[in-house]
Amino acid sequence: MSYFIQVVVDGLSNGAIYAAIALAIVLVYRATGLINFAQGGMAVTATFVAYALTRVGVPVLLALVVAVVFGFLLGALLERGVMRHFEGGDPDTAVVATIALLVVLSGLSAYFFGYEPHPFPSLFPNRTIEVLGVFVSLRSIGTITVLLVVMIALQLLFRSTKLGLAMRAVADNPRSSALSGLPVSRLLMIGWGLAAALGAIAGVLVAPQLFISPGMLDFVLVYALASAILGGLDSPIGAVVAAAFIGVVENLAGAYLDFIGDDLKIAVPFIAVIVILVVRPQGLFGRKVTVRV
């Protein structure tokens, strides 16, 4: 029994890594209506800023704060300098532009820090506690706690604040929003800034486990996108639940289905994702889009 719980707990801590990035994807989608492939690149770049600071002796928490501010400015700058030229055009073009940004940002990080993975200090003590024969690392508990706080904050932002409402309106229909007097460009800029700032938090949370390198989030991004889409793409809660689902199902399949084992376990949650999306195209927590004629 404790083995079963251990497998689930391990799955949850993997899921926390996917959820961290998935939340940022959801945020930028809610704020701009785009799936942003540059999310991983912005997160890594901001995390490298934190890394550089910790290298010269700055405490991790302070480095995180600086990285968040840097992330916000970076995101805002990229929106202002690059993405604005694609706004109002074909959304597909904008998505391709975000892929280009991802490549450029990775290249920049590599230029300054190289490709070798470096250890990154953890915000939380690197210890494990034992509860009823199950071992849980304090790092995982800390990561999950921060994620839940961020998730609730995002939910509140979009549900209960004027800024969130305005951002949703802009993402939904920029032209009407502009006609209603909303500062569309500025709101998009804030959306990108917030997404990159959240990316910085996510990056600092997962870097101790993954080691920081320009490619740190390349594979995580795949899981994160799957989580975000399964969760409904516009729902922070959905993204977190879906990420936990993927992490746990993957581990359970690897541990208990002998014919699947470690080689095929990754396929299991993704097949589940396909099945769920066929039955429920809007995702677990997504809003159904209806068009009235």
């Binding site: 083995y3 251990q6 497998v7 391990d10 799955g11 801590s13 993997n14 890594i17 996917y18 486990q209 993954l210 594979f219 995580v220 899981y223 993957e250 581990n251 690897g254 541990a255 084992g261 470690d262 080689d263 376990k265 990754i266």
Partner: peptide, 16 residues
């Protein structure tokens, strides 16, 4: 146990 180089962590394998 085995793993893919693209895995994010090997916690599950080590637990097993």
């Amino acid at each position: 146990a085995t793993y893919e180089p693209t895995d994010t962590t090997l916690d599950a394998q080590v637990t097993e």
